[in-house]
Design a protein around this nucleic acid. Structure first.
Lengths: 103, 103
DNA sequence: CCATAAGTTCGATGGATGTCGTACAATCAA
DNA sequence: TTGATTGTACGACATCCATCGAACTTATGG
């Protein structure tokens, strides 16, 4: 079964803020924004287990921050920038324009 | 002893996002922004116990979102808008411009 | 068909979090 | 001084959360 993505109108501010309040997840979003190309989950090189990464990606997806699509054996992840900009104008830019933190 | 307020440069994005990710705390910040006048802690009328309110105000204060100053028997709370705007430009406006949610 | 690679699922675990009630401290008014 | 008002401190408790390892699924490539 395909994973669930909330509709744009269903994206909740508190869920987005909570998703972005974890340093690992914020760094994921930061890199997705820089690349502007869908990216495989395993290409982030964090010192975390696979199951923990799955947990973080699920948190971001269920909050409506990212989109995940299966592509063969991998899973491409992309930022839902248009949806986020439409729903919370300026939020993503404000968050991403702050200085990165080491993770 | 006076409660601790982080210096502007010490305010961390993850702490701010976490503080704002709770609906009650977000509503507190929303009202502080509308009033633009320092406000007593007890004037928010939430259906929460006093100790829970203390907890939320402490979370906001330690994240650097609000300032608390004793004034007689009450405690005036104000938004640290200048500090937040300087440290994370546009963040507070983006958060506050989204539609309020019932609490 | 088999092995490998990429993620998910499923407990488990230690720590944080939101909530409460009761007791306490500080200030002001009578 | 006594009482009322405001808020804090301290446990307690149920839940959530970030993390892990091990077992599983799904697709790809010999």
């Amino acid at each position: 079964m395909e994973p669930h993505h909330p509709d744009r109108s269903e994206i909740e501010l508190s869920a987005v803020l909570h998703a972005l309040s974890d340093p690992h997840r914020l760094e994921i979003v930061r890199r997705l924004d820089q690349d502007s190309e869908p990216r495989a989950c395993g290409t982030f090189g964090f010192d975390l287990s696979k199951s923990t990464m799955t947990h973080h990606f699920r948190t971001l997806r269920e909050a409506g921050v990212i989109r995940q699509e299966r592509e063969g054996t991998t899973k491409l992840t992309s930022l839902r920038r248009e949806d986020l900009d439409a729903r919370f104008p300026g939020l993503l830019d404000a968050v991403l324009s702050s200085e990165p933190v080491a993770v």
